[in-house]
Each structure stands twice: as structure tokens, then as C-alpha cells.
Design a protein around this nucleic acid. Structure first.
Length: 993
RNA sequence: GCGGGUGUGGUGAAAUUGGUAGACACGCUAGACUUAGGAUCUAGUGCCGCGAGGCGUGGGGGUUCGACUCCCUCCACCCGCACCA
């Protein structure tokens, strides 16, 4: 074999590992560049071909940056705490640490085969105590801080205590959820426990009773981003709302900075929009409406205070705390009933049922703060208790839901817009001029909003307010396989474990299940099983998966530091991640939390930047191509004289079952199935027909006089069964392997094509174990080599696009590498080089390629890069070029994509082993591309008809003359005079007729 | 409903600033050489048409000498958000 990739690749991988070729220097005169991949969760299934897509791209870019003279940080690690390992532990009793280690070993083996230039000395695992010690430490910092809105940053809690001691809390501008005010004296008079409770409502991580998403099937709470459409993101289990005492992260404090920070980072609009959406900023005013005859007032939040004169009623959420107090006797029964019905509906139902307008009058009235008029107070489930204040001022002329509600219940609709017709629908645009609104009359909405807020504040019944949809993030999980909290309890008051005693390691437990009384698994641990034993008990919850991943990119800079989470000098040198590659599915989870923690650590002065990931590229998902075999179902039509309907149905079903068992193991080739679908009567299969006949006779014996009995096969309802793609080649099933696949298929029969083959159907789906369509990179590495795999994955198409995996074209890429190899070698596979000066043509090809490859890398267009290499090698092959100077440059160019073959060729060219990774990226020299003439496409009315070659220095006029004189042009002119001739020098000629 | 994205041969795709649409690769067809590794080489391959030629980048319209590219409008698919006050 000429190009022996197996031997080459193995040797070079060993060389890189032994020589630590890709070790990154912590301090260097070179400029730094940090390329990061989203680290994987090591699942039991191993890597499939989709995982390396992003890793290959980032590796190519890392290698390119090294060639450009950068000191590149390109690490890899494992997000190794998580649910699947724990579920597996519950089933098998094995410690999750054991399976996690095994899975990591498998991942590492797979990654090693692909030739990544990771600095493996920097590997981190979120589940290792050396790592999570610092996750616990960061938690402690959050606990020890509050958010000072005046300084707009996190500040130590001691400073807050100092303020309380001197002036109480009245003038403290903090992000908090403490209700009420206290003086310095009152503060000092509080017991330690009371003070602790107060402080808790200011801390950036806090313990509180909060409504959480409880997932009974997983036995844990979930964060909002882990709940999708009312079910758990992992596993799709139902989720219910439950009030629980939980640790939360006060991410709300950072809402505004998380929003504005997006403007300064280079991410896709899609991800930024998702985060903006999730944060959900809305500006407006909070306004208090007095309740007629009550002390209480209703606080509403509105984005349109300019429409306040259009308020003709109020709507409270059915759960609003004031509802019971204000409801009049007359309406109390109706209100109770409405509340009951609303409580029966799930949050999801309430949200999906948009068309039904429901509501209930409470009989109470609110006083309009400006007009003093009484407006009805209703309850309605279109108002959500969890958003804003759980109450709205209804402006039917300006809000479609309010309009619908008013129409439905016959409530007055006041028009406060100039020249706007609101008889058919509300007018929600902000371009109308306000009318009918006293001091707001004649103002356009934008101005009116400001004026209204000003007036509301002046009169003292409300103020301008900005509201965010972002909720604080629940940080406790009732699970075993996660970071323990550095928290112990004394008299149920939480205390922090001192830094010196960190990490709190995971204690051994007898089972990975909750206790009988519903406590999390850690409650099973004996006190002595903990490595810290202060207080009455330790915290039994563990941290969520996103804890460790929120700061791992920092740890890579200083992975072995035992004294700090990262040394300041190192983070000063490496700074933030220059290029982050990963999937877009983490938009509102990991990517938001990591930004939050980064801003927090920045506030405390530990790191010099506020945004973790400067530029991000989201690689598309690689989809699988599933193969299917088809099993048909019988259709029995039986009618029996003198027997009841029920009996008939029962017998029919029996028959169906019997027949099903006959057909169970019969599989029909896809093309034949399609034929029968359109023409069921063409079906003929002696064996099956015989079986059906036999069955019919049996029935005839059993049933005296069937009025009608027909048995047919329903081809349209054929059952498609996933067949493992490893036993399918080019859609043709290996029937012998299939029979051995599962016991139930041992006696399978196949209705095949004429040539005896069984043809499978196929579909593009997500790659997953259960669909038997998982392609691992291992086989492909074995068959074609890592360099081919790397180039092929890039060749598939643009990185960001999702695409089905198909190995059809892999030969083309493999052939390219063989052609490349042949440029350097003679027929006997001996290196054969021309040591002289390169030809003009070869230089032109080379420099054209240098330009394109460089440009492609700069815009992350890896697929066109591969194409350009192919073009280059094709041209050099045509030129029979084996010039050393040319090939040496080409080898460097190719090395980021195909590092193994590049290393081998580099040495065969006479260079030192291992030096290619730090060679100099070839310099583009335009001179080699300079042409003296250009082949002009000559088009008529924009259509290219033929080409003519002219010198580049020929004048426009001269070109025009030559073109028109050309006989080919005369043919297209058809004797007419051209209206106009456009000559773009060096580009094109267009003749307008 | 709102926001983001995609739409080009039989297939994956390319066209970077408005300038030869389909590069490169797969597949397919024919031929050559071998007949063992999934081989290699040559020629062809957008569609219609014998041909001249016509048509062609989701549909329709526009700007322009010239549009895959810019503008308007509609359609389909994918992703995210959604009684958010």
C-alpha cells in the first residue's frame, strides 16, 4: 500500500503524546489564542460522528493559529456529573464514579484516534474533588455577596451588614426579596437567626421556599431551562409545581448586564435573541389602583402607562392574594367556582387554550387614580400569577386580549386614540396620538409614556419600572451524582464550611435513591461518611449540572492549582475564550449561567473580563440515516350469522392475533411493499397464502356458517422497524446477520426483490442508540484513517448547518489524500522531488491556494477549504509537479486539516519531526497571480455566449471595437446595432441589444 | 402571532464586493486497462430539444447593462419564544 495511513497515524499520535507537542505555555511572548470546545458529558454510548464535528473544526483552527505564531490554549475535559450515570447506578448498584471513569476512558480513546491537538495535561473533570472544591468555593463567594444596584455590581455581605448597622435597610438599593424596612436599632435588636434570615434575602445565592419544577419521575427539581413544554428536558417526564426549600441563584440581579453584554460579543443573532427573550426586559410603570371600600390597593405593571385613561376594568389572576378579600357576597360563589376550575387546569393548558375567553366578575371596584371613576375588578386566567404583579389594568382599545375580554363580557371600550377605529379590533401600535386623556391629549405614544410616568410619580401612586421575565435559578437537586454543597446546618440555620475544609466530598451511600421520608440520597449517608462533621447535619441537596460547566473554561488556564481556582497572572495572560464552538441547545442554560458567574467573578476582581466567550460558532447537528425493515399487519373481515356484535369482534380479534403471529416474522422489501401499497391485489406469496388458507379452514371448522370471511393484508399499515445500520449496506439488508440480531427474528422470512436482495427503507432522524443509526468515528478511522475522517466531516457542508450523516462521499476525500501522497512519490513509493526552482504554473496554483485556504479559515468555511485543496492537488498532478518548494508549502497548508499525513510528508521532505505544528503559515504573494491577459466572457443582454481573450491593459474602447468586430458577435447581433456595450476591465463585457 | 434560519442538478454542495450559476466531490453513462482488495485512467453528465436554440438558483413582481446575491410580496420547511400586561 502506497499511503499506509494506519502506520503513519499511529506513529505520529505516539510522537505527539511523547513529546507533548501541543503543550500550551502559560506565559509567552507570543500573542495568545484560546480555542474551546463545549466539553462533553461522557455517556455510555460513546462518541458518535456528530461529536467530533465541532472538535475537528476547532482543532483545525487551533493548528492554524499555531502556524500563525499564536500561543494556543486548546484544552478538553469532561462535564462528568449528571443524571444518566446516576440512573445507571440506581439500576445496577454500581457507583456512578466507576461508570463515569469507564465512559471517560472510552471517550478519550475515541478522541485520541482522531488526532486532536489538545493539551491533555490540562484536562478537567467536573466530578473530581480537586475541581469541585473550587465550584464549592465559588458558591461560597456568591453566598457572601449581595448586589448593590448603585454600584451595579456584587459586593461583600459585610458591607451590607455595616450599612444595616448604621442606617437600616431603607436606603439600601439592592436586588433582594426582603419585604419591609428596619432601622439600625431594629437590626441590632434582631437575634442572630433573624439577622441570618434577613441577610438570606439579599445574598446572591440563597435558601428560600420557592415554587419549583418538581419532576417526580426523576425525583428532583429542575431549573426553568431544563423544563421544555411542561416536561423534563431529559426523559420527557411530567413536571409539577411544588413549594420547596431550595438554594437559588439571584441571577435576576444580573439581568440588565446579561442583556447589554450581548451587544459586545460575537455570537449568532439566533442565540442572542434567545437570551434576550429569556431575560425578557419590559419597561413601563407600576401603578397602584385603590380598591373601593378597602384599605388595599392593586399594583399593576404596564408597558403602556400612556393608555391609562383607556382603563375600563381590572383583571386579577385567580390566584391573586386579594381576590378573596375584595369579592362581594353576590359574586363569591362564582369566584370560588372560577378559581376551582382554574386550579384544575395545568399551566400548560392555560397557556395553550387561547381561544376560550373566560373570566368572573368579583363585584369589587377599583378607583381610577386619575379620573376617580369606579372600574370593575374581574378575575381571569389569561392573567398569570407568576408574571408581574399578577394583575393588569385592562385597556381594551389598546390590547387585543383586553378587547376580546371586554367584548365577551360586555364591558365598555373607551377609545383614547385620535382617528383610530377600534370597533373591530384593538389598536396596539405605538404610533397613534392619544386623545380623550386630559393632560396626555395630542401626544404621540412615546412622548405620552414619559409624560404619564412623570405624572404618576408626581401624584404618588406609582413609578416608572423595568421588569424582567428572567427568574432566579433554582440551584438544588435532590440527586446523588453532583457537587455537595459546602453547607452544614445548626438548628436548621445554614452555615458555610470554612475554605480550609473544602472540598466537601461525596459521601458513600447504600443506595442512590431518596430516603423513605423523601429526603435526597445524601441523607442516607452516615455522619461519619462525610469528610466534615460540624453542626447537626450537612446539606443533602447537590448542585445542578450547570454548576461545574459555568466556570470550567477558567480552570483550564490553571488546572492543578491547589490554592486558587485560577491564578490571577494566568487568567490575565489567557483572558477570555477567543473562539467557542458548540451546539446551540445550551442557549438559555449553560451559556447564560456561565456569563452570570463570569460577571460575578469579574465584580469581585478575580478575573479581568466580563464575558467568557468572545466569539461563538454553533455547529449543526449531524443527523442519522435510519434503516427500516417492514412487517405487515393482517386485516381480517369476519361476519357471523346469529352471533352478537361483541362475539364477532372478539373472534375477529382472536383471528387477527393468530394471523399476526404468522406474519410476525415476514418482512417485505421496501420496493415490493410500495408496489403492493398501490396495488394490493398483485400480492402473491405461496407460503403466506397457504398459511392463510389453512387458517381459513380452521375457522370454518370452528364457526359453522360465517356469513363473510375474508383475510387480507393491510400494506398501508405496515410496521416499520429500525434495523441496525451496521447490517445494511447501500440499503441492502444482510439477512443472515439480521436473523441473528434478536431471537425473535431467528425465523424471519423475507419477501425479497427478484435478485434475492432485501431493500430497506430509510429516513433521516436524530442520531440515537434507540434508532440503531449511530455511526461511531471508530470504524471510519479504522477503514479510512483519521485524516480522511477529519476532512470528510468538514467536506460535508457548512459547519453551522445540520446535515444527515452519509458516508457515500468519503472515498472522494480518501482519494484526495492518496493523490497528495503520490505528488511526493514515484511508482515505487519512493520519495521523488524536484529540487529546482518551481514553475510559474505551480507557483500560481500554490499561491491561489494559499489565498483561498487563508480566507476560508478566517471565515470558518472549512468545507470550501477541502475543495480548494482538491483543486490544488488536481492542478499540481496535471502539471506533474513534484517541486520541493511547492510541496513543502502545500504540506504546511494541509497540516491543520490532515495533520498525520502532513507530519509524515514533512519529514519525508527532510524536516525535523514535530516541527510542522509550529512552522510558519505560507505567505501569499500576489505577484504569482498577476496575469497579462484576461479571458473575457462576452454576454449579450446578460447571457454569456462566448469568450474572448484580451490583454489586461487594453482600453475599454479597444475591447468594445474588437468584440463587435468578432464574427461570433455578429451572429448574436443579428445585424442590429447594439444599444450599449458595457466593458468592465478584467471582468466582463456585456452587449445590450 | 413574534423572532432567527434555510430553500440552487439524481445527491452533499460552491459562487467572499451585483459580473461566466452548478466549482469540488459523490452517483450515473460509455470506453480503456486490468480482471482481488471499496481499484485506476479517459470522456460525458442541470433540464427540454436531433439541432439551432430555449429554460433554469422555492413562486410572483421590481431595481440594474447585468441578480443565487439588493428591494417588495407570497409559499414551504427547521429552530426558538408565545395570553409577558
Amino acid at each position: 500500500m502506497e499511503y499506509d495511513f494506519r502506520k503513519i497515524e499511529k506513529e505520529w499520535r505516539e510522537f505527539w503524546a511523547e513529546n507533548k507537542t501541543f503543550k500550551a505555555d502559560d506565559f509567552s511572548d507570543k500573542p495568545k489564542y484560546y480555542v474551546l470546545d463545549m466539553f462533553p458529558y461522557p455517556s455510555g454510548a460513546g462518541l458518535h460522528v456528530g461529536h467530533p464535528l465541532g472538535y475537528i473544526a476547532s482543532d483545525i483552527f487551533s493548528r492554524y493559529k499555531r502556524l500563525q505564531g499564536y500561543n494556543v490554549l486548546h484544552p478538553m475535559g469532561y462535564d462528568s456529573f449528571g443524571l444518566p450515570a446516576e440512573q445507571y447506578a440506581i439500576q445496577t448498584g454500581q457507583h456512578p464514579e466507576k461508570t463515569t471513569k469507564e465512559n471517560i476512558a472510552r471517550y478519550r480513546g475515541q478522541m485520541d484516534k482522531i488526532g486532536f491537538s489538545f493539551d491533555w495535561d490540562r484536562e478537567v473533570r467536573t466530578s473530581s474533588p480537586e475541581y469541585y472544591k473550587w465550584t464549592q468555593w465559588i458558591f461560597k463567594q456568591l453566598f457572601d455577596c449581595w448586589y448593590d444596584k448603585d454600584a451595579d455590581k456584587a459586593v461583600r455581605i459585610l458591607e451590607l451588614v455595616a450599612k444595616f448597622e448604621t442606617e437600616g435597610n431603607a436606603n439600601v438599593n439592592a436586588e433582594h426579596d426582603f419585604e419591609g424596612t428596619f432601622s439600625a436599632e431594629e437590626w441590632k435588636a434582631m437575634s442572630e437567626k433573624e439577622q441570618s434570615t434577613v441577610l438570606m434575602s439579599y445574598r446572591l445565592t440563597y435558601l428560600a421556599d420557592s415554587w419549583v419544577n418538581w419532576c417526580p419521575a426523576l425525583g428532583t427539581v429542575l431549573a426553568n431551562d431544563e423544563v421544555v413544554n411542561g416536561v423534563s428536558e431529559r426523559g420527557g417526564h411530567p413536571v409539577e409545581q411544588k413549594l420547596m426549600r431550595q438554594w437559588s441563584m439571584r441571577i435576576k440581579a444580573y439581568a440588565e448586564r446579561l442583556l447589554t453584554g450581548l451587544d459586545a460579543i460575537d455570537w449568532t443573532d439566533s442565540i442572542k435573541d434567545q437570551q434576550r427573550n429569556w431575560i425578557g426586559k419590559s419597561q413601563g410603570a407600576s401603578v397602584h389602583f385603590k380598591v373601593d371600600g378597602h384599605e388595599d390597593s392593586i399594583e399593576v405593571f404596564t408597558t403602556r402607562p400612556d393608555t391609562i385613561y383607556g382603563v375600563s376594568f381590572m383583571v386579577l389572576a385567580p390566584e391573586h392574594p386579594l381576590v378573596d378579600q375584595i369579592t362581594t357576597d353576590e359574586f363569591s360563589a362564582g369566584v370560588e367556582e372560577y378559581k376551582r376550575q382554574a386550579s384544575l387546569k395545568s399551566e400548560r393548558d392555560r397557556q395553550s387554550d387561547v381561544k376560550n375567553i373566560t373570566g368572573q366578575n368579583t363585584g369589587a371596584f377599583a378607583i381610577h387614580p386619575f379620573t376617580g371613576e369606579k372600574v370593575q375588578i374581574w378575575i381571569g386566567d389569561y392573567v398569570l400569577a407568576s408574571y408581574g404583579t399578577g394583575a393588569v389594568m385592562a385597556v381594551p382599545c389598546g390590547d387585543q386580549r383586553d378587547w376580546d375580554f371586554a367584548k365577551h363580557f360586555g364591558i365598555e371600550i373607551i377609545n383614547i386614540f385620535e382617528n383610530v377605529d377600534i370597533s373591530e379590533a384593538a389598536y396596539a401600535e405605538k404610533d397613534a396620538v392619544i386623545a380623550n386623556s386630559e393632560f396626555l391629549n395630542g401626544l404621540p405614544a412615546k412622548k405620552a409614556i414619559k409624560t404619564a410616568i412623570h405624572e404618576i410619580e408626581k401624584q404618588g401612586f406609582g413609578k416608572g419600572k423595568t421588569q424582567y421575565r428572567l427568574r432566579d435559578a433554582v440551584f438544588s437537586r435532590q440527586r446523588y451524582w453532583g457537587e455537595p454543597f459546602p453547607v452544614f446546618y445548626k438548628n436548621e440555620v445554614p452555615h458555610l464550611v470554612p475554605d480550609a475544609d473544602l472540598p466537601i466530598t461525596l459521601p458513600e451511600v447504600d443506595k442512590y435513591l431518596p430516603t423513605e421520608d423523601g429526603e435526597p440520597p445524601l441523607a442516607r449517608a452516615e455522619k461519619s461518611a462525610w469528610n466534615y462533621q460540624e453542626g447537626d447535619r450537612m446539606e443533602y441537596n447537590t448542585m445542578p449540572g450547570w454548576a461545574g460547566s459555568s466556570w470550567y473554561f477558567l480552570r483550564y488556564m490553571d488546572p492543578k492549582n491547589e490554592n486558587e481556582f485560577v491564578a490571577r497572572e494566568k487568567v490575565d495572560y489567557w483572558n477570555n475564550v477567543d473562539l467557542y464552538i458548540g451546539g446551540s441547545e445550551h442557549a438559555t442554560g449553560h451559556l447564560l449561567y456561565a456569563r452570570f458567574w463570569t460577571k460575578f467573578l469579574f465584580d469581585l476582581g478575580y478575573i479581568p473580563f466580563e464575558e467568557p466567550f468572545q466569539k461563538m460558532i454553533n455547529q449543526g447537528m449531524i443527523l442519522g440515516r435510519s434503516s427500516f425493515v417492514y412487517r405487515v399487519k393482517p386485516l381480517v373481515n369476519l361476519e357471523i350469522e346469529d352471533e352478537g356484535v361483541i362475539n364477532t369482534i372478539k373472534k375477529s380479534m382472536d383471528l387477527n392475533l393468530k394471523l399476526d403471529s404468522i406474519l410476525r416474522s415476514v418482512f417485505i422489501s421496501k420496493p415490493i411493499l410500495d408496489k403492493y401499497k398501490s396495488d394490493p391485489y398483485s400480492f402473491s406469496n405461496p407460503r403466506i397464502s397457504a398459511q392463510i388458507e389453512k387458517l381459513k379452514n380452521e375457522i370454518a371448522k370452528e364457526i359453522e356458517n360465517p356469513k363473510e370471511l375474508s383475510i387480507s393484508i393491510d400494506f398501508n399499515d405496515a410496521q416499520a422497524i429500525h434495523a441496525d445500520i451496521s447490517m445494511v449496506d447501500n440499503d441492502i439488508l444482510d439477512v443472515e446477520v439480521f436473523k441473528k440480531w434478536r431471537p425473535e427474528f431467528a425465523n424471519a422470512e423475507f419477501i425479497t426483490e427478484e435478485d434475492g436482495t432485501y431493500v430497506c427503507g430509510h429516513e433521516v432522524e436524530k442520531m440515537s442508540k434507540s434508532k440503531y443509526n449511530v455511526q461511531t468515528p471508530d470504524d471510519l478511522c479504522e477503514d479510512f484513517g483519521a485524516d480522511t475522517l477529519r476532512m470528510y466531516e468538514m467536506f460535508l457542508g457548512p459547519l453551522e448547518q445540520s446535515k444527515p450523516w452519509d458516508t457515500k462521499g468519503i472515498n472522494g476525500v480518501h482519494n484526495f489524500l492518496r493523490k497528495l501522497w503520490r505528488l511526493f512519490h514515484d511508482q515505487n513509493n519512493k520519495v521523488s522531488l524536484d529540487m529546482g526552482d518551481p514553475s510559474k504554473d505551480a507557483l500560481k496554483t500554490l499561491h491561489k491556494t494559499i489565498k483561498k485556504i487563508g480566507d476560508d479559515l478566517e471565515r470558518f468555511s472549512f468545507n470550501t477549504g477541502v475543495s480548494n485543496f482538491m483543486i490544488c492537488v488536481n492542478e499540481l498532478t496535471d502539471q506533474k509537479c513534484n517541486n520541493k518548494q511547492i510541496l513543502e508549502q502545500l504540506t504546511i497548508l494541509v497540516s491543520p486539516y490532515a495533520p498525520h499525513i502532513a507530519e509524515e510528508l514533512w519529514v519525508r521532505l527532510g524536516n525535523e519531526p514535530g516541527t510542522i505544528s509550529y512552522a510558519k503559515f505560507p505567505e501569499f504573494n500576489e505577484e504569482h497571480l498577476v496575469e497579462s491577459s484576461h479571458e473575457y466572457p462576452i454576454s449579450f443582454n446578460g447571457k454569456m455566449r462566448f469568450k474572448l481573450e484580451f490583454p489586461l491593459d487594453m482600453s475599454k474602447e479597444q475591447i468594445e471595437k474588437e468584440v463587435l468586430a468578432n464574427e461570433n458577435a455578429q451572429k448574436w447581433l443579428e445585424g442590429k446595432d447594439p444599444k450599449k456595450v458595457i466593458v468592465v476591465p478584467g471582468k466582463i463585457v456585456n452587449v445590450v441589444i
